[in-house]
Computed example of a mutant assay.
Amino acid sequence: MDILMRYVFKHRASGNIETKVFLTSQLEARAAKKLSPCFDELQYELISRDLCFDKEKGVFVGDLINVTTWFGNYIASVKFGEYEQDGSGDEYEPSKCFGFYAEAVIKTITDEDGFEVVPDYLVQNSMLELESYKRLGNIYENPELLKTEEAH
């Protein structure tokens, strides 16, 4: 199975951010330095290597997404690993899960009527469970996205 990977590099001299996306088959077929000059460690620093969750939307681990639920919209960070999920609305103990998940950046957002937009049981949610989301960007190329969300 071919896995899509995103590499984020920082140019040491200029500080510019470079993003490169490769399939694992490409990485296995050629030496990394032949795929891109960004793999030259003297010129570039590797700051992130991320798995792809959704090829169609270009969503990778480390991206920020706008999640739409019937509670309202909120910003989440895409992550991969172990998390707890409770789809019961606190009726049962959360289940330990492993995989791609969205974690709310700000966990205490309320709508104009004072109701929670992100109830406790949706703070960490499987990406597969999300009905609607849109990629906003990643924190390396768009650090202002995180600052804007933290200001709320």
Rank of each mutant, 00 (worst) to 15 (best):
residue 106 I to M: 14
residue 119 P to L: 10
residue 128 L to Q: 08
residue 76 A to I: 07
residue 83 Y to T: 00
residue 72 G to N: 06
residue 126 S to H: 04
residue 136 L to N: 02
residue 122 L to K: 12
residue 137 G to M: 07
residue 80 F to I: 04
residue 119 P to M: 04
residue 80 F to C: 00
residue 53 F to M: 03
residue 101 Y to W: 02
residue 107 K to D: 04
residue 87 G to A: 06
residue 111 D to Q: 10
residue 105 V to W: 01
residue 61 V to H: 01
residue 124 Q to R: 00
residue 65 I to D: 07
residue 135 R to W: 01
residue 65 I to G: 15
residue 49 R to N: 14
residue 115 F to A: 04
residue 136 L to V: 00
residue 133 Y to K: 11
residue 95 S to L: 10
residue 125 N to G: 08
residue 57 K to W: 15
residue 89 G to A: 12
residue 98 F to E: 13
residue 133 Y to C: 07
residue 137 G to P: 00
residue 58 G to S: 15
residue 137 G to V: 08
residue 125 N to E: 13
residue 135 R to C: 03
residue 90 D to I: 05
residue 106 I to H: 09
residue 100 F to Q: 03
residue 54 D to T: 07
residue 122 L to H: 15
residue 101 Y to S: 11
residue 120 D to Q: 11
residue 72 G to K: 12
residue 67 V to S: 13
residue 86 D to I: 15
residue 84 E to Y: 05
residue 118 V to Q: 11
residue 90 D to H: 13
residue 130 L to K: 01
residue 79 K to Q: 06
residue 93 E to M: 09
residue 65 I to S: 02
residue 67 V to N: 15
residue 103 E to F: 08
residue 93 E to V: 03
residue 82 E to A: 10
residue 87 G to K: 10
residue 126 S to K: 00
residue 109 I to E: 07
residue 131 E to G: 12
residue 70 W to G: 07
residue 127 M to W: 01
residue 87 G to T: 15
residue 83 Y to K: 00
residue 55 K to N: 08
residue 125 N to R: 01
residue 132 S to P: 11
residue 97 C to T: 02
residue 60 F to P: 02
residue 104 A to R: 04
residue 56 E to I: 14
residue 130 L to H: 01
residue 80 F to T: 12
residue 118 V to L: 15
residue 78 V to N: 04
residue 90 D to G: 07
residue 119 P to K: 14
residue 120 D to H: 12
residue 136 L to Q: 07
residue 75 I to T: 10
residue 111 D to G: 05
residue 94 P to L: 03
residue 56 E to Q: 15
residue 71 F to R: 11
residue 86 D to K: 10
residue 68 T to A: 06
residue 127 M to G: 09
residue 95 S to K: 03
residue 115 F to H: 13
residue 126 S to W: 06
residue 89 G to H: 11
residue 49 R to C: 09
residue 132 S to R: 10
residue 94 P to W: 09
residue 78 V to D: 07
residue 82 E to P: 05
residue 62 G to S: 12
residue 51 L to M: 11
residue 66 N to D: 10
